[in-house]
Amino acid sequence: MQKRKICMVGDFAVGKTSLTQRFVNNSFSEKYLTTIGVKIDNVVVDDTKLIIWDVAGRDSLSPINTNYLSGAAGIVMVADGTRPETVESLHTLAEMVVEKIGQVPCVVAINKYDHNAFKLDDEQQNKLTSQGWDIFKTSALTGDKVPELFQVLNNAIGAVTSVGEEA
């Protein structure tokens, strides 16, 4: 079976692990447990095994260790819709990703859509879509838009590799 490495990146506590667990195990935990290093999981989508690298979030003290991104075929960038600064962070994260591994397919999850403090104004949204990213307002709690997020990324990777060579 074909295997693809994808990475979850974003600021700390935006819900990268929750989105991954929702997608892989269809489960959700209210408890916040910060990820250290990287957590690797896998799930099969359309006869492709996605190896998901759930990379520890960036915080004010520690940057993301970009070594974990090596060889990723696609990136899920995650922000927290209740913390606007995490949406702003996506742009610098994207630069960091490109610097490390070059241009790869990328989707954006603005998470915690179920939360009543969720806010994504037009200006922010336009700035994200102008990068050519697909934006998903996700909820790991309800599962809303989570399968779509990974499906679209997988399709995008498929489209890129079918033109080039499969790893």
Binding site: K3, R4, I36, G37, I40, Y68, G71
Partner: peptide, 21 residues
């Protein structure tokens, strides 16, 4: 071994903490 997928066999790489299920 899943975590080898995508990696480059010619490059040095240090992955300090990796958790698999």
């Amino acid at each position: 071994i899943d975590f080898l997928v995508g990696l480059d066999s010619h490059s040095t790489l240090d992955l300090p903490i990796v958790l698999s299920p």
